[in-house]
């Protein structure tokens, strides 16, 4: 059985988990086994809706104390539930929570794990999955040698697939281990689209000259419904908050659309965004290295081009 860990925040199922479920369902189909989902904590959604993305069954450990992550507690629970259910493949989303617990769960299950996976397993000769390495600059095909396999899949690498399976929800009755941490504060970025979950991202670099010029970028992001990102020097100079920094030493993202404005395209920057499906580069220097990695390019002054692009986006929306 393929068991997919369903992650939540604020009692809402993360999109990345639905993608992990779609992926798990595809593996299950290939192996001719069932795919089941595991939900810890309380969520607002009706859990039978997980059938949409393939779940044949949903296991639910309904306890409010599990709504925020405690690695030790969650690891122990997921591992013992997986053992009880005889899961042979475990799938996690490679998001903040998934990457925190999946390797620990693998250790508890004596399972081999591959994180950052971006393809379905190849089972013609063992169990081989592809992961991104060198920050997206290459792929490694890795064989998992153990009977139980754990996979953490990159966000936006597989997409959502609808199966519309009929599903039942089973409640799990299990004692919750004592907490190992105490959450004392949660600070939310209000009204913004989280970068790692975003389909569309508008990003700015040093070419925008200063924080006071970010308005044109924010207007474009708003028109598109996009999240915002930036290059490292921009966040290092505190023009933008550090959680917007993408690249080799920042966040790695793979949106459908990445629009880079006034960013040169240094190799360390590309490492964080080169898995984007479509890249648009706006830069006044036609020799900027970013154009080599781009699908669409506009050579010119961002201060003139970006407002025009925003206007065109808004116009296309109304027509």
């Amino acid at each position: 059985m393929v068991l997919v860990y369903i992650d939540q925040a604020d009692q809402q199922i993360k999109k990345a988990s639905l993608e992990a479920l779609s992926y798990g369902a595809a593996i299950a189909q290939e192996l001719g086994i069932s795919v089941e989902a595991l939900v810890l904590g309380t969520v607002q959604e009706d859990l039978t809706s997980l059938g949409k993305y393939g779940a044949n069954k949903v296991h639910h450990l309904k306890n409010e104390s599990l709504n925020s992550l405690d690695v030790k507690v969650h690891t122990n629970l997921v591992a013992s539930i997986a053992k009880n259910l005889n899961a042979t493949v475990l799938v996690f989303a490679q998001n903040f929570n998934g990457r925190a617990i999946a390797p620990a769960v693998a250790v508890k299950l004596e399972a081999g794990i591959v994180t950052g996976v971006c393809s379905l397993p190849n089972t013609t000769n063992g169990f081989v999955v592809t992961k991104t390495v060198f920050s997206g600059k290459a792929f490694a095909h890795i064989k998992i040698e153990t009977p139980i396999k754990v996979i953490a899949i990159n966000q936006n690498s597989f997409g959502l697939v609808e199966y519309n399976a009929s599903t039942t929800v089973e409640n799990i009755d299990l004692a919750i281990p004592a907490p190992s941490i105490k959450i004392t504060k949660v600070e939310k970025i209000e009204g913004e689209i989280p970068l790692t979950e975003a389909n569309l991202v508008v990003s700015g670099g040093r070419g925008l000259k200063g924080p006071e010029n970010w308005g044109i970028l924010l207007d474009l992001a708003k028109a598109l419904g996009a999240a915002t990102a930036c290059s490292r020097p921009v966040s290092d100079s505190d023009w933008r908050p550090h959680h917007e920094h993408v690249g080799q030493t920042g966040i790695q993202i793979a949106p459908n659309l990445y629009i880079a404005i006034g960013i040169s395209g240094a190799i360390q920057h590309l490492a964080g965004v080169n898995r984007s499906k479509t890249i648009v580069v706006i830069n006044k220097d036609p020799e900027a290295p970013f154009f080599k990695a781009a699908d669409y390019g506009v050579v010119g002054d961002a201060f003139e081009i970006v407002p025009k692009l925003t206007a065109a986006v808004l116009k296309a929306k109304t027509t």
Binding site: V128, H141, I142, K143, V298, K308
Partner: peptide, 25 residues
């Protein structure tokens, strides 16, 4: 518990399509 089968590189981008800055539509 795992071993590397092989590596490969992503296919190269097919080349950038340049758009006239006056024609954002």
């Amino acid at each position: 518990s795992t071993s590397i089968n092989h590596f490969d590189l992503p296919p190269a981008k097919s080349g950038v399509k340049l758009i006239d800055p006056e024609n954002m539509d």
